[in-house]
Design a protein around this nucleic acid. Structure first.
Lengths: 238, 238, 238, 238
DNA sequence: AATGAATGAGCATTCATTCAT
DNA sequence: GATGAATGAATGCTCATTCAT
């Protein structure tokens, strides 16, 4: 067989197609219904049987990972394209943030539910892609701060969390009022990022590393509900 | 005694105690685990049997309503107290927002899940309390705008949604890093509200009425997942 | 105290009133809803709390027994009155049967459900009253047969079962069509009893003793559903 | 192959087998225990898990419908066979009635419980089969009346209700006394149908349409308990 | 490899019965 | 003695996951 030993054993054409359809269906349904949407519903939306879904993704966590990976890949592509195209760093950052939201990736579910959070933990591939996106964002932020167009007392962690916040408001396509509301909130938060001089911020700038720390301690996992995690929570994880 | 009518025929002392314990347990678990926590878990946390829980609240929706009502009552109390105590309107508004969050009411779940949203719909008592809170906030906002300390191009709907956003970040007590992050994000959003001159905002100021409209059209219900509402969603409602 | 040692310790006036109200409510609801109607519903209909109901009747079986006893007492009264008043035996029997049905006692639930059946078993008081009703019926039947106005090839057991059958059709007051249908079926069955010469009947006349035998073997218990009792059924009895 | 359309997409062999087993088990248990038997018990009797049962029949009502449909199909087969084979109409009618009972279909639960009644309502397939059975019965009745072997003052509705009555007595196989009792009662009712001249019947002949009317108004639904229908009963329907 | 059937554990809810007030 | 609260077992139904076809 043409299998060159690689981890993913090179899918047959139809299998690859199925895989893609499943991911698309899952992304849409995760977004529309939630990460808890019945597997069968995802399978149906993808036009396959559950069996097929499970053959490709052994359990829900794997599916969530796959969707996330795909999402982050799109973000990487976006980030690098924006950085290359827009010379003004504040403008580039803003565009990056807005475009990231408009991709409707639920950026990228980490913030959305315990379940998604736990599923995504410990995926080096995802970590790698996220790092790449963050690197771009960090560069843009630094340049904008140097240029004096973004407030100096924040770090990329603050920025990113602001983004996660606003991501909750991304409306489904077609609702005009909700769309306007979203755009306004986005603008408002961007104004917060730009505020110079802003109100002196409490604490110290939040770094990417802080975010990872938060993630590790469960401090981010609970956004999907209200708030995170107590120890025995893990039992619920299945 | 103080019973000025009597549809709910005045609970026995122990029953009232249980009722309160259930609401407390539910509030905590809704916050920590989500509105979907198993009823049994709530009962256990309240130290009663499921039967007792169900006697008091015929179904989950009723329990959600009761918790919300209680939450809003606290908010009313807070709002009116703050308004009476702090003469500077911008300061009063900020304090109100921050304190509302620190009450950890999940302000107040409307934004959190379809289920909560649907449960709360059509509760005139809740509507009434919410209106009172909004009235205070609106007054404070207006005065602050008149005083030039809050940007003029927003309305109470914008403010409220900003609050809903940040409410997602309220951390469980005791996590210092998460607490700091939350405080910073709060400050950042407040700076957005204060930004004068801010970036010109798209659309038009979002009123309380707009929010109600959004709510009605399902445009707010879905924040708990990623995004709201397609027609057949309602089937899922039970 | 004034308790003369008798088994029923002489209830206080209000207690006696409660007892009567409960029995009335239970009779009505057993008839309208079924013997499985929630105890709480019975209590409410009787205007008492469940506690009171249970104090008077330790469990559902006792309540069923009490209702049955009351019903049979009414039947005894009826039977003896009719026998005394109507000289023509066939006419008297017919009147007895029809009146028994029109009392809407569900004559008297034995035939109605496993549960009722089991509850009533082994109640000597009920047995005694039933015996008295049967004695009257038997006398009337015998005289009518002697007079040649009821077919000779049946016995009181046949008659009684025919009655049980028709009792299923007793409609709620006020439904004219159902009432007519019931009266016709009753007439039809009476014509069957009168048929002379009828089709030769299979088997032999069914006596009261046969009925008791059937009851004992469970052969009557199942009328409430379709058919009776297999051994392990008893587990369901509670 | 024989699939001339395909809404039910042709079950796999094992699934078809399971489906049949479930229907058989349900028919038996509905008959023996009642339509309220725990679903789990049905599943166990069918040798499958509850899940399987529910996959095939989304809820109890669907299962009841399926059993009824199957039952009526058997009745149609019986009716048409009897009509074709027996030239004497009164004899044919009698045979049809007796055989229908001996099929032990609980003919066919409509008369048995509110729940069954409600489940069956609005099933055009069932209606159609029932109509076919009734058509045969009506023809036979008409011919027998023309031949003077069945009384002239009744209609098919009367006949059918008489049958429903007797159906309550169908005993479980193997109980000789109960079997004899049943046969006698059947004979007695048949004699009632044949009574010429019978006692003048009250009201007017009851047609099939009357029966449907009764059914519609709930006047038949309640036979399973004692008596039907008050308005708020419907709440109990679930 | 795809499919869809089967399984069973999980959770909501009801209600008989017991018990504190 | 009356009341209505508390309990928990029973049952309907859903859905993740496994497995036969």
């Amino acid at each position: 067989m043409g299998d060159k030993g690689g981890t993913p054993p090179a899918l047959r054409a139809d299998a690859r197609r199925n895989r893609a359809q499943i991911i698309d269906a899952a992304r849409a349904l995760f977004l529309r219904v939630g990460v808890d949407v019945p597997m069968e519903e995802i399978a149906k939306a993808a036009g396959v049987g559950v069996g097929t879904l499970y053959r490709r993704f052994p359990d829900r966590a794997e599916l969530i990972k796959a969707v996330s990976l795909d999402n982050f890949a799109r973000l990487v592509e976006l980030a690098e394209r924006v950085e290359g195209a827009e010379p003004d760093p504040a403008q580039a950052l803003t565009t990056l943030l807005r475009s990231a939201l408009e991709l409707r990736l639920g950026i990228t579910m980490t913030a959305l539910s315990d379940r998604a959070y736990r599923a995504i933990q410990s995926s080096p591939e995802i970590d790698e892609l996220r790092d790449r996106v963050m690197a771009v964002a960090q560069r843009l932020l630094g340049r904008a701060q140097a240029a004096g167009t973004i407030r100096a007392d924040i770090e990329i962690g603050d920025t990113m969390l602001a983004l996660v916040l606003v991501s909750r408001l991304v409306p489904p396509a077609g609702d005009d009022l909700a769309e306007m509301v979203f755009q306004r909130l986005f603008a408002l938060v961007v104004d917060g990022l730009r505020a110079i001089p802003g109100t002196p911020m409490p604490g110290r700038p939040v770094t990417y590393e802080d975010i990872n720390e938060l993630r590790r301690s469960g401090g981010l996992g609970g956004f999907g509900k209200f708030a995170p995690a107590d120890p025995d929570e893990s039992q619920r994880a299945r």
